[in-house]
Nucleic acid binder design. Structure first.
Length: 573
RNA sequence: GCGCUCGUAGCUCAGCUGGAUAGAGCACUAGACUACGAAUCUAGGGGUCGGGAGUUCGAAUCUUCCCGAGCGCGCCA
């Protein structure tokens, strides 16, 4: 039993008791009452906000209610003192044994410590990366990849049934351009001289290999054909080649998708028409003329009547067109179909990880999912800000026009997947992030990956030197402030998981790991100045045993948290 | 013009969905080394949380209006 859950359960009993006695009304809602570690350690071991949260409902003054509750809480097992402070905080001090009991839970659970069942086995679909199949993943894609993947690990750790999904935009104009670009390289492979790649086509050298491979497989059969004859096979070949590259890049990053969904298959299977029929039936569509956007009117704007989705009924700023002037579907309408497909397949919630450049797309997608599902909050969209690649503080130059950009593969080869996975989570996802090659491989406090891994390596080092672990230890004797500070940090892990999972914010795990590492490094160094604080003591086998278990628990929690991020812990640096 | 994401220490950023005297790291100052028990740690100075108004016991957090930055705004995806 988690110490916080213990007090929450005790509080539940106390409030029921008070309700029964008529001291507080039956209707009082205690769901916002929390027991937590106070920010300031001088405020005791555990703080409770109940008096402030419930004062209005109970029609009592916060301090008065606090007095009442404090009296009851003082009677709970292990409580040594209860104070009331500030506007009505109830600060509880407990016997150290309550903390060491938690330590035993950690050791019993191993790296499963922190897991919870909030998801209750329900399905959630996370769509991320979904880069166009027109080239290798570039560095900016890595952030979305890591965010989505960490989120997936986090939600699994919280009891959700997670599907990791990549949406392949293999229909539409971009892949036609790809096909034309590859066709040029194909001609080149067959001996024709290509001076310059015409503007509008993909100039990247990575397409040369694709042209060569196409020539090797199919020979010169497309040479004399008209475009409408070669376009389909060349396009398919190119898309397959690009997706093979992208999958390899993802594997290098440690990302393994469960599902790759094809836009082309969706469209050809009639899913768009089906989705539109569905919206039509439910009365969400109409034909109308859109106002041009104010302030920035496109030069070629022509008012025209078109099929529109009534997105404004679901909070969007304007209604959204579903059909292009040439009669084809807009990207939005195939995306509507795709989200309907995901809703039906998943039978649960959806999460999309988008780049910031798709920010303007969020409202209409939320609107569409609400219209399709008939429910709010079925879709959460995480926007991923830009990554600035740096080398010793200076931006890395990239020339898009020449087609040479820094790829995910380049970065993985330079610094390793573990470093990328961690560093990408050292900022909130909606904050821009500087990724400095030099700094992220530095072996110092400046580099959070190193700092965390080093803490784990130090734990391993101690355990190595100790040899075998003592079978039993009296953990109740771990009572020094620095020890208790570390234990409290360890005990926080399950709550971090819950908070990060419910807010869909995996960066909290990275920050937690840094805090935990800091608490451990601090305790470690304390032993330097004061030999009595060392983990292994020649003259005190009992304390040594207890401290070894503390070290073991620390390593366990670090490993558990790194596991969620799919980063292996290291035993040596 | 409208919308989205932001604005927190000199710099880079957290802030547990409204809680206590707003926290870290870097840098700066002063200290601690028998190197996997110094790749680290301890202590110190440093703030009008962009600005105004509002909501309430209580606001960095919620509402609203300004200022500033980035992104987006039918027939690209």
């Amino acid at each position: 039993m988690n110490i916080f859950n213990f007090f929450e359960a005790e509080f539940q009993a106390i409030s029921n008791d008070l309700k029964g006695a008529g001291t507080i009304p039956e209707t009082v809602d205690v769901s916002k009452v929390v027991f937590e570690l106070p920010r300031n350690a001088t405020h005791g071991d555990i703080a409770c906000n109940a008096a402030m949260v419930l004062a209005k409902q109970a029609k009592m003054k916060p301090r008065e209610l606090a007095e009442l509750l404090a009296g009851r809480l003082a009677g709970c097992d292990g409580v040594t003192r209860v104070d009331i402070a500030g506007p009505g905080f109830i600060n509880i001090n407990v016997e150290p044994r309550l903390w060491s009991a938690e330590l035993r839970c950690i050791l019993a659970a191993g790296t499963q410590y922190g897991r919870n069942d909030r998801g209750a086995g329900k399905s959630v679909n996370i769509e991320y990366v979904s880069a166009n199949p027109t080239g290798p993943l570039h560095a900016a894609h890595a952030r979305g990849a890591v965010l989505g993947d960490a989120l997936a690990g986090l939600l699994e750790f919280s009891g959700w049934k997670v599907t990791r999904e990549y949406y392949v935009n293999d229909a539409g104009g971009q892949v036609d351009i790809l096909a034309h670009s590859v066709y040029l390289r194909y001609l080149e492979a067959l001996g024709e001289t290509i001076d310059t790649i015409p503007p509008g086509l993909y100039p990247g050298a990575y397409l040369k290999d694709v042209g060569v491979a196409l020539a090797a497989r199919d020979g010169d059969r497309y040479l004399a054909l008209d475009e409408d004859k070669w376009l389909n096979p060349v396009r398919q070949f190119a898309i397959d080649a690009m997706m093979a590259i992208i999958r390899k890049d993802l594997v290098k990053l440690g990302v393994e998708m469960d599902v790759f969904s094809s836009e082309k298959a969706l469209v050809e299977g009639g899913a768009v028409q089906a989705a539109i029929d569905r919206l039509q039936q439910d009365g969400h569509l109409y034909c109308g003329v859109l106002e041009p956007p104010k302030g920035k009117e496109p030069e070629d704007w022509e008012p025209r009547e078109q099929l529109l989705f009534r997105a404004t009924a679901f909070g969007d700023d304007t209604d959204r067109p579903l059909q292009k002037s040439d009669g084809g579907w807009t990207y939005f309408s195939s995306d509507v179909a795709y989200h309907l497909d995901k809703l039906e397949r998943t039978g649960g919630r959806l999460i999309n990880v988008f780049g910031v450049d798709h920010g303007g797309y969020v409202k209409r997608m939320m609107a569409a999912v609400e219209a399709l599902s008939g429910r709010k909050n079925m879709l959460d969209i995480k926007l991923c800000q830009l990554v600035n690649l740096m080398e010793n503080g200076k931006p890395v130059k990239m020339s898009k026009r020449a087609g040479n950009f820094v790829t995910v593969r380049d970065v993985v080869n330079a610094v390793g997947a573990d470093v990328i996975r961690f560093i990408m989570l050292t900022r909130r996802s909606d904050q821009t992030l500087d990724f400095d090659y030099a700094k992220v491989t530095e072996q110092s406090r400046d580099n959070p990956v190193f700092y965390v891994q080093y803490a784990h390596a130090r734990c391993s080092s101690v355990l190595r030197q100790a040899g075998t672990m003592p079978d039993e230890a009296n953990l109740d004797i771990l009572t020094m402030p620095a020890e208790l500070a570390l234990i409290k940090q360890l005990v926080s892990w399950p709550r971090i998981v819950v908070a990060a999972a419910t807010t869909h914010e995996p960066h909290r795990i990275a920050f937690y790991l840094m805090d935990l590492a800091s608490a451990f490094h601090s305790l470690w160094t304390a032993g330097r100045g004061n030999p009595a604080l060392r983990f292994m003591l020649d003259d005190d086998a009992e304390l040594t045993a207890a401290r070894l278990w503390l070290v073991k628990a620390t390593a366990t929690v670090i490993r558990s948290a790194l596991n969620v991020l799919a980063i292996p812990a290291r035993d040596e640096m």
